[in-house]
Each structure stands twice: as C-alpha cells, then as structure tokens.
Design a protein around this nucleic acid. Sequence first.
RNA 1: GGGUCGGUGCCCGAGUGGCCAAAGGGAACUGGCUGUAAACCAGUCGGCAUUGCCUACGGAGGUUCAAAUCCUUCCCGGCCCA
Length: 436
Amino acid sequence: MPDLLDDLDRRGLIHDSTDRASLGARMAEGPITLYYGCDPTAPSLHIGNLIGLLLLGRFQDAGHRPIALAGGATGMVGDPSGRSEERNLLDDAALTANVAVIKEQMGRIVDLDAPGAALVDNRDWTGRLTLLEFLRDVGKHVTVNQMLARESVKARLESEHGISFTEFSYMLLQANDYLWLHDHHACDLQIGGSDQWGNILAGIDLVRRVRSDTVHGLCWPLLTAADGTKLGKTTGARVWLDARLTSPYAFFQHWMRTDDADLRRFLAQFTRLPMEEVEAAVAAHEEAPQRRLGQRALAEHVTTLVHGVAEANAAGEAAGVLFGGDPRQASAAALAVVAQEVPGTSLEAGEALSGGVELAPVLVRAGLAASLSDARRQLQHQGIAVNGAKAAPDRQLGPDDLLHGRWVLLRKGKRDWAVVDAGRSRAAHDSVGPPS
RNA sequence: GGGUCGGUGCCCGAGUGGCCAAAGGGAACUGGCUGUAAACCAGUCGGCAUUGCCUACGGAGGUUCAAAUCCUUCCCGGCCCA
C-alpha cells in the first residue's frame, strides 16, 4: 500500500495542508480520526461533495476513522465562503428534511457503520449551546481582527452586499465543531475544499488555544472544469446525487461528456481506481480518443459508486442504444431500458396519433423544451429529431412513428433524449422538473 | 437616528419620460465542423400567439396620452455622520 498522502498528492487532492510532515508522522503512528462536513443547503448533495466523501473512504481504506458531519446547525446560519451575497435561510422543516437526505447519501458513499466511523449532526451539540456559553467558550478565543482578515469576509466587506453578523459568525460555529469532535471523538484532522481552508484553520486555532492540542487540516483544490467553469454543473444546473433530481442516466451522461483534458484528474479524484489503473485508462484513451473509453470508464465508476451497479449498467445500456446507431433498429427490450432511463411523457387524452399530434407541446412535457416558444424555436432551428431523423418545423407525430407499437424517441440537439410512451397513462409516468 | 448613493432579465451591467422585452459581456440553447470532447464560425436566448397581445426593470400607490425612467411611501443594501 503506497503512502496515503503521496497517493493523494498524485491524485491532485492536496491543495493545502497544515504541516505535512507532522501530519504524516501522526498518521504513521496509528489511525487518525478525521471529519468532513456538508451543510444541508439543498435537498441533495451534488458531485462536488463526492470528492470529500470519497476522501473519507480513502482514509478509511488506509485504516483511519472517518466522521461524516451533516451541518444541521451550520446550515441554519449559512457559510459566506465563496458567496458574493447573503444566503437565504431555510426554514426548519426544509432543513430537517435535507439533513435526512444528506445523511443517507453520505452513508452510501462511505461505510459509516464500520468500527470507528461515525455520522454526526452538529445540531446535536450546537443546538443546546447557549449564547453566553458560546461567547465565553468560543468567542473569547478569537479576535475579530483575525476574522476580518479572512478572504471570504474581506470580499464581502468590500462588496455592496455586506455580510450579516449571522454569516460572519459561521466560522466560529465550524471551529466549535472541530473542537467538539476533537473532544468527543478524538478527531485530529478536518478535510474540505479549498474554500473551506479559512474555516478549517479557525478550528485548528481554537483547538490549540483551548486544549493546547495540535490538530490538522487538509484541503483539495476547489474543482473547476478545464474550461474554467465551476465543477458540478451540467448545462448550467447542478448534478445531484439524488436520483429524483438527476436521473442515473443523466448522471452517467454528465461524466460521458467529460472534456478530454479533465479525464486524468476526474478519474483520479472521483474514482477509487488505483493510480496505476488511472494512468493506464488515460493512456488507453489517448490511443483513440474518439472511442471515449476514458469517459466511459469514468461514467461507469462514478455512477456505480453513487447509484449502484444495476443503475449504472442500465444507464450505460440506454446510452448505447441512443448513441450507437439508428434507434429504429433497436429491439423492444433495449427501448424498454431507454424508456426507463430517459425523461419521458405519454400522450394526453385527446391526442390521437391517427389524427397527427403537434410536436411542440410534447417536447415541453418531455422536458426537452422550457416553453412552447422554446419548442418552436428548436424545431425552427432543426434541433429536434424524431426516432433519429431530423424533424421539419411542421412535423407531426403519426401512427407510423411508433417503434414496436409503443414508443417514439425524441432528441434535442445532439444528446438530449426523451421518449413518448403511448402505452402508459401519463399520470404514472411524468418524471420531469427538478428544481434548479 | 441623520445624510447620501443604489436595488434592471440566469449572472454582470448599460439605459434616466415615448424609437425598451430593454445596449454590451458572460452563461445557456441550436446549427456547421467533430469523437455524446475542445476550439472555432453562425443563429437564438421573458411568455403566449406565426408580425399582435400579455408579463417584466425591489414592493405598493400616483402623475402622464405615454414610466425601468418623474412623485409618494414601504422594504433591502453600500458609504458618510451620530
């Protein structure tokens, strides 16, 4: 087994760390307890959180003890890091629901039932902390001068939006988490994205001041895709771990579309493949980039990790049908798989194929267009294909369009597919419309 | 609390009575070229309707034939003063 820190280095996962040598020495002594926290600001984690969870897993594999923290308390306050504006606060019910989802998702990626591992919610200890205790036990150890020096605070002070006292206090809550975990779980390492570095340092300082103990921090570079956009977004929207928000098929496709330039890094950071295999996969890919072997390997690994083997296979199979060749040649069984994976709709009452069905409203229902205007625009621009063949702007759906007597495949642009299912009632089938 | 400046479409940002659904940039979408990639070129980018209507420029009122643009008031923020 190679040295863990060296391995992380090769994967490009170490952006910054507290004294590397002493951290290495501490890890060599025996199992270290480390934590990674996610705030429940949305109803699901997204692929950006995957790095941290996987990292917990990497440490676990190396014999260390991971703690996943759901920020039930910090989520109420809102982290100003990387934010140009004040956050909107979530109400209690939404927060509680989000925490439940996040906990489940964390457990899916990391084995939190293993001995030494833990899943915690910082609301459990922060919720009962009184204001006076907080001011005396935490606030007293931190100078406002230091807090003002933090980049995230500075940026907000200079912006016209300002920063509320609530968000300004955020770093103290997170620092207190570290202290609490250090006290109760002997946690000596906190990991996070580089945007968390300031918060992590605040915790390390607090532990040193209050307990005179040296604890560690490690952060990975905040990911951006090769084109400079923030990671975790496809077509402007986040890629969620929740299958209801991002279907396994869409999830799979997100990775299939990875830029060649990002392949090595993503394989290294989003999969548990040994680095030798990552290098081999990249080398194989570069032999014949047009075969997209690297993207496929990446998509299969990550989708399996998040949604399981069965879903990953189904998504891959559906992609094979859609991108393989002429969908009119596909078997009924293959189309059934596609219909499961791709967004879909069915015919409305009153829409009879024999009479010809207007395409635009169907595109909207299937989620391929945002509005009728948008749908018409796409048709006008030759952006829509029916069963793989470009559709004229006045194209209507008729009985001859049914594949295997049941399905019509619609495509927008090169890669967005949807299926019209004439064999099912609409109510049971609609599956469009995740939040943004 | 006082003064002052500001709140524009997904984001940034012009516009300061009609020619404004609102310049420009970014993002996004489609087409072309490709490898379900990148880069590049072209088009699109509030909604409904096939050249007309509706909804929009922080909220609510008002002035006017006509307001994102003027007035009143409320909410939110920056800066200065207390």
